[in-house]
Nucleic acid binder design. Sequence first.
DNA 1: ACATTATATCCGGATATCCGAATATGTCAA
DNA 2: TTGACATATTCGGATATCCGGATATAATGT
Lengths: 115, 115
Amino acid sequence: MSAMKKQMQQLKALADETRLRLLALLLSAGELCVCDLTATLQLPQSTVSRHLAYLKGAGWVIDRRVGVWIYYSISTDNALQHDIAEVLRARLPEIPAIADDIRRLASFSEGASCA
Amino acid sequence: MSAMKKQMQQLKALADETRLRLLALLLSAGELCVCDLTATLQLPQSTVSRHLAYLKGAGWVIDRRVGVWIYYSISTDNALQHDIAEVLRARLPEIPAIADDIRRLASFSEGASCA
DNA sequence: ACATTATATCCGGATATCCGAATATGTCAA
DNA sequence: TTGACATATTCGGATATCCGGATATAATGT
């Protein structure tokens, strides 16, 4: 794939509110399983999985299976993506809706949300 | 408009190749009129104008009329947008297709492309 | 006033994207 | 092997986005 096509795919991944919220949670928390993300965003599981697959295809996340759970974390393919990730890590929490998500995630953090 | 909606609008603006090429040219050259952009990208004028209007609505550019010409330049509403603009300014020229655009613009720069 | 040039907007059709219930896959424990 | 749980994928329908020719608007020079 051309560099342009690849970078466009990465930018398109940011053009959806659900995916941005997922990235914000992963940037803030490091590594999370699908059930944590689903519980925090309060969205159908298929919706969360579909968007995570999209982010993975665009190189924004990697996944790691641990038994039944699959943990997602941030990944960056190239310089542009890496730099944008740092900007998002610093700035997304300034958006109230994102800050709410991060707080909601923290409130689950003691007991795993998918018991 | 909520902060989230506004930021989504700004990120959606980056999710189109034509708009990204326009931003790259403006980040590189400072201020350009529609005819310079149209000549450089070799796209229909209506397409260029439509995307510029989109970028203006999202707060990425401002315009300034000088006689018959309308000059566009980069603008940033908030911290996220400002930081992303700096990343784009530094990294977009690393994409070959973008570098080609910037070179093509430079080749026009002596005589105005819209005589 | 009129022609010319630069730019913006309209609009219908093509394409892409998003949603989420249903279903499939994979893992573990009994 | 069967059941239960976590996650992925499928698919049809709704919605959004993009394109560009045609047309409108705006400024200038004659």
